[in-house]
Nucleic acid binder design. Structure first.
Lengths: 182, 182
DNA sequence: CCAGACATGTAAATTGTTACATGATTGT
DNA sequence: ACAATCATGTAACAATTTACATGTCTGG
């Protein structure tokens, strides 16, 4: 589980409140580790209990904004974790199951719906990434940290492009099979 | 959740027992929808309760092999589901969090470990997919169902190749940054 | 001062993982 | 008959999602 370390990273970049974290997750780290505010609040509580972060407000101040910042112990922990290894995350994609189901059913069962839907989503996401690329990483010298962030964005760009290629290819194949089948 | 429909698909291709399913998941559908035997048994119970499959043995025959097959209602349900749409699965990759953490820590914190480890895994997986491609999809005419299955395999091939490219690129960049940093 | 937005949380349901338990079958 | 293995299952736990609840601040 990487949520605690994703939070430490984000707080190290910029100390802020839980709600701010939730918003920033929607724009940066969240592309690769999504999290809702509910998860974030619970995890921040654990981080504070572990002595990895501290917050500006007293306990139980419900509704009042509290700012979290990383403590030295938290930075140590983050360093330790960065040097660990993980297994690559298992793929788990319903679209592939649908395609295989379509093959097993042996008929125009309607995967096109999902293919078209995803094609649209991946194009939107690609456009979003391309905007970020244009805005943040184009036309100037990049610091070391920025070069790493750009690398991560490029992974997202490549992934979306690959998904788009795949959906298009699948749609062409289905078209071919159906006209041949008729 | 696609596990029930992945099971229906697999049973439609070939009726078999829970343990057989678990093994076949390791080789085909499981590449895109992993599942352990514990999950599979629980889900088979629900499928049977729903009237979508039936099994060869009486209830409570613990330890004795039972063969499951899809009923017409199950096939109907699978057809219905194939025509639905899903959101693309959210990415969730600790490696990206590590890279961003390395950027935030601003030092040789050791992401190389994970990059090298994954590079090896993705190369192994690619080799596996290439074997399957060679064995099952090369040098002969393919039926419509086989063309769809091949398409799915090609998605796996493309994904692994993309990951390999990414890891190599990241390692080169880190190398550059570190020699420049010293 | 109060309506609406903002911020922080709690609770329950779903899904998936890990560890373990038990019955049947097979080879020697 | 007995050990090893196969097959089925249970239990406890961890992570994530969804829905809801409560407190604070701000503009009119």
């Amino acid at each position: 589980m990487s949520l605690p370390h994703a939070l430490l990273t984000s707080l190290l970049e910029q100390p802020c409140s839980g709600m701010d974290l939730a918003r920033r997750f929607g724009r940066s780290i969240g592309f690769f580790w999504p999290a809702t505010h509910q998860q974030i609040y619970k995890e921040l509580g654990k981080l504070e209990a572990a002595g990895w972060v501290r917050s500006s407000a007293e306990e139980g101040a419900r509704g009042r904004k509290r700012c979290y910042e990383v403590l030295p112990a938290g930075e140590q922990e983050l360093k330790r974790w960065v040097a660990e290894t993980d297994e690559p995350p298992p793929l788990r994609d319903a679209l592939m199951v649908r395609l295989r189901a379509e093959a097993a059913l042996g008929t125009g069962a309607g995967v096109e719906n999902d293919l078209l839907h995803r094609l649209a989503r991946h194009r939107t996401q690609l456009a979003l990434y391309e905007n970020i690329e244009q805005r943040d990483f184009t036309g100037r010298e990049l610091s070391a940290a920025e070069q790493l962030q750009y690398l991560i964005l490029q992974s997202g760009l490549a992934t979306e492009r690959e998904h788009i290629r795949f959906c298009e290819k699948a749609l062409v194949l289905l078209e071919t099979l159906e006209t041949a089948g008729v």
